[in-house]
Design a protein around this nucleic acid. Structure first.
Length: 277
DNA sequence: GTCCAGGGTCCCA
DNA sequence: TGGGACCCTGGA
């Protein structure tokens, strides 16, 4: 993808398959909010970032160093999503979802942040997931300044690992507090090593994740997809169950999407939720 | 005011 | 294998 530095920003010219509104509102990431200017502002890997789209042009509020060292990878800019979409044999429903949701990229989020986020997601709606995560960061993360505003980093696993579930009562996340502490301790003691999980056969990695209390198959698949970029992972939640029941034959195997089932899942999930079930 | 479902998981028959 | 319990909240 071509880019240029301009006035301390990075401009992605004619950015194809790059739609901030879709990427940040499709439910894969809970830390970027729409601003009053229509841009998206959030924090990842301890850095603030504002993403502004104007037609074909996308501007990122970062230095070239941060762009190349952090955000290029975060936005998965090495992967040609259009090429992937065009290469897959799609049924009419998936084709409609893919066309409507072109612009979603599977962000390469921090493993621990994704793990935490999807533990919180269970039996919750997206606005509430975002508000719980915001309280988590405000309570236990580090403040960072951006254009006169105070944002917060995502707290490290080690920070939460020394707490007890009742210490998280300020999050108002209910029974998930105990699960968060379990997950934090597992990460802090190295029982869940992202580098090792990324190399394992996917069934083995899923099993390792599910050994932590509070992580079942669905959350494990979300962590595989969004925290480890295992694009073959295909999380099935209530929305996916409804969409699969309505538009796919019984026993449908997402393996027909090959190694990109997770991207198709995200197209279908967002399309079902926002456009047509 | 009450009811219900929301990107689940666990436990126990 | 199925169903209830678990926390909390926004919307109907």
């Amino acid at each position: 993808m071509d880019y240029r530095c301009k006035n301390g920003h990075i401009e992605l010219a004619g950015a194809p398959d790059f739609a901030p509104a879709l990427m940040f509102e499709c439910g894969q990431c809970f830390r970027f909010d729409r601003t009053e200017r229509g841009s998206y502002l959030g924090v990842a890997f301890g850095r603030p970032l504002e993403v502004t789209q104007a037609g074909e042009m996308v501007a990122l509020s970062c230095s070239e160093d941060d762009f190349l060292n952090i955000w290029w990878n975060f936005f998965d800019l090495d992967l040609d999503y259009g090429k992937i979409r065009r290469s897959l044999p799609l049924d009419p429903y998936t084709a409609a979802a893919a066309e409507r949701c072109a612009g979603i990229r599977i962000l390469r989020q921090d493993f621990w942040e994704a793990l935490c986020s999807f533990v919180i997601s269970q039996c919750n709606n997206i606005p509430r997931i975002k508000s719980i995560i915001a309280r988590l960061c405000e309570s236990f993360g580090e403040p960072i300044e951006y254009c006169g505003r105070t944002l917060y980093t995502f707290p490290a696993a080690e920070r939460l690992a020394i707490l007890e579930p009742e210490d998280l009562s300020c999050l108002r996340c209910g029974y998930r507090a105990a699960y968060l502490i379990h997950a934090a301790r597992a990460c802090a003691r190295g029982a869940l090593d992202p580098a090792a999980l990324a190399r394992m056969p996917i069934d083995e990695a899923r099993e390792a994740l599910q050994s932590v209390p509070g992580i079942g198959k669905k959350v494990a698949d979300c962590v595989l997809l969004f925290g480890l970029h295992r694009l073959e992972a295909f999380p099935v939640d209530t929305w996916m169950k409804k969409a699969l029941a309505a538009h796919y034959p019984p026993g449908f195997d997402p393996a027909v999407f090959g190694g990109y089932a997770g991207l198709m899942q995200q197209y279908i999930f967002h399309y079902a939720r926002c456009h047509a079930l």
